[in-house]
Design a binder for these strands. Structure first.
Length: 497
RNA sequence: GGCCCCAUCGUCUAGUGGUUAGGACACCUCGCUUUCAAUGAGGUAACACGGGUUCGAUUCCCGUUGGGGCUACCA
């Protein structure tokens, strides 16, 4: 039997980093077992639908290298296409007939029923239950309506939803690939809505029907779905289908241990792409949030992760999304990468999005500047036997926004004293002599002559030139920027002390 | 409130019925460095608690506590 996994995001705007991890595990499990990785779009919620949501998700997925074998994918021009045969589209909004048929089948068999309850009634019911600290849930108001009468009311156009009937007794027990045996009492589980009044199915119906029709063998998804499993299993039973195996992944968490959310930082993969993180670093970092091959090595390529991937090595508890560790992974990959590759990546990075610097600065840069700044960094590396963070350093190229300057290492007095003097000094250097050796000597002499400490001059100089707290050396930046731009930036900095 | 899941340094984690409980990030100290970063060498730091089971539990079982998820005509 061919292993088939799927990733089934909702196109609500962008790919969430948690989604990327889910996709990664599903991808790795499929590849490890020589199976297929299917991409399906779950867009049955019309209210949250975002027009280019699918495009964005695919972009991020392709960026990371998680290319679907089947379902929704890109062609060579980044047009959205579909591949594979599941008896229809891999986009749920285009499968309404299929869900309708299946819902009707459940009604015919007495496993589901029309519900005519108004949302207001359900709201009141819920409020009452909450107020009285009762378990919340549907009260079965429409469950006993005569099916023939219900059918008639529905076909007469009365607004309704379709609910599945959960058994009132017994237990649902299943074996999660990661958590082992989990059991639920059926009586506590709601008669879930499976078809909404707008004619679209809810997640619960769509996911069961599609996973079956698409021959998914392993459902890999976040832990937030664990409590829905009994409903799904009941649906499989009603349809007479065998359930796929399931693996519920631990959640990615904010620093306060709540579910990773937009409010507490960036959650979109594209945000991290824009910041200059390498895909290798993101993949490696995210893979190790909840999975560990054992041992002490932490740097793993995608292929190596695939090779080692196994549900036994997936943890059960949530993992905090720790940016400092991500930075470390990024540095490690930057260190390893050779210069040519680095320049190429930096170029792709800059070309990928014209707005990439909008948060940091504005202005022009040229390819030769880019190559130079990276080469300089690399040179500095050999000189000092250090290694670069080149992608981060390309940010010195655009003109930074002055209100982002951070002066925290120097006092205002110090800055007002030193920067104008430094500017006058640099003005005396001719354009022809403007290279880092001469700059370094000139500034060095000046520092001595004035009796300044080295740090009190070089640090502000670097900040004024780069707009950043951490950057390449000031002389290297000055050389790349040229005399005019360097002096302009120091002016800019002076006016923003 | 109900149901479900989870529990090793601050964080990500390795690990075992008997270990000096290992690594990485972060942090601290020192060194290097004409500046920050980077880098080198050290260091602080964890088995949530209470009962069992056992010669022996961090490890197995139960409970407590704590955290999280779900509890929609959202996924």
């Amino acid at each position: 039997m061919t292993i088939r996994t799927r990733f089934a995001p909702s196109p609500t705007g962008y790919l969430h980093v948690g989604g990327l991890r889910t996709a990664l595990y599903a991808y790795c499990f499929a590849k490890k077992n020589e199976g297929k990785f299917v991409l399906r779009i779950e867009d049955t919620d019309r209210e949250r639908f975002v027009a280019d949501g699918t495009q964005n998700i695919l972009k991020s997925l392709y960026w990371a290298g998680l290319i679907p074998d089947e379902g929704v994918m890109f062609d060579n021009e980044e047009n959205i296409i579909q591949k594979g045969d599941c008896g229809g589209s891999y986009i749920q909004s285009e499968r309404s007939d299929i869900y309708r048929e299946h819902a009707d089948r459940l009604i015919e068999q007495g496993h589901a029923y029309h519900c005519f309850c108004a949302p207001e009634r359900l709201d009141e019911l819920r409020q009452f239950q909450q107020l009285n600290k009762l378990p919340t849930g549907y009260d079965g108001h429409c469950r006993e309506i005569n099916p023939i009468e219900a059918q008639k009311r529905a076909s007469d156009g009365e607004k309704h939803v379709i609910r599945m009937k959960m058994p009132k007794e017994g237990e649902t027990v299943f074996n999660d690939e990661i958590r082992g045996e989990v059991r639920f009492k059926n009586e506590l589980i709601d008669d879930q809505v499976i078809m909404k009044s707008d004619g679209f199915p809810t997640y619960h119906l769509a996911v069961v029907v599609d996973d079956h029709l698409m021959k998914i063998t392993h459902i890999i998804r976040g832990e937030e779905w664990l409590s829905s499993v009994p409903k799904h299993l009941q649906l499989y039973k009603y349809f007479g289908w065998e359930s796929p195996k399931m693996a519920h992944l631990p959640l990615l968490l904010n620093a306060d241990k709540s579910k990773l959310s937009k409010r507490q930082g960036d959650v979109a993969v594209e945000d991290y792409v824009k910041k200059g993180y390498l895909k290798e670093a993101i993949i490696n970092f995210i893979a190790f949030l909840g999975w560990n091959p054992g041992g002490e090595r932490e740097i793993y390529s995608l292929d190596e992760i695939i090779n080692e991937f196994n549900f036994d090595k997936v943890g059960k508890s949530g993992a905090i999304f720790n940016l400092q560790k991500l930075d470390w992974f990024n540095r490690e990959y930057l260190k390893k990468m050779d210069l040519a590759e680095l320049v190429q990546r930096a170029k792709e990075f800059l070309l990928a999005d014209p707005e990439i610097f909008s948060a940091i600065g504005e202005g022009q840069y040229e390819d030769k500047d880019l190559a130079r700044v990276i080469a300089l960094e690399r040179e500095r590396v050999t000189t000092f036997s250090e290694l670069p963070e080149a992608l981060k350093f390309v940010f010195v190229l655009p003109k930074y926004k002055s209100d982002l300057l951070i002066w925290k290492k120097s006092s205002v007095d110090e800055l007002q004293n030193i920067l104008p003097g430094l500017k006058d000094l640099l003005s005396t250097i001719s354009v022809q002599s403007w290279d880092r050796t001469i700059l370094e000597r000139t500034v060095g002499d000046w520092v001595k002559e004035k009796g300044y400490s080295v740090g009190s001059v070089l640090w502000p100089m670097r900040v004024a030139l780069s707009g950043q707290e951490n950057s390449p050396g000031p002389f290297e930046i000055a050389e790349v920027l040229g005399k005019e731009e360097s002096l302009n930036r120091i002016d800019l900095a002076i006016s923003n002390i």
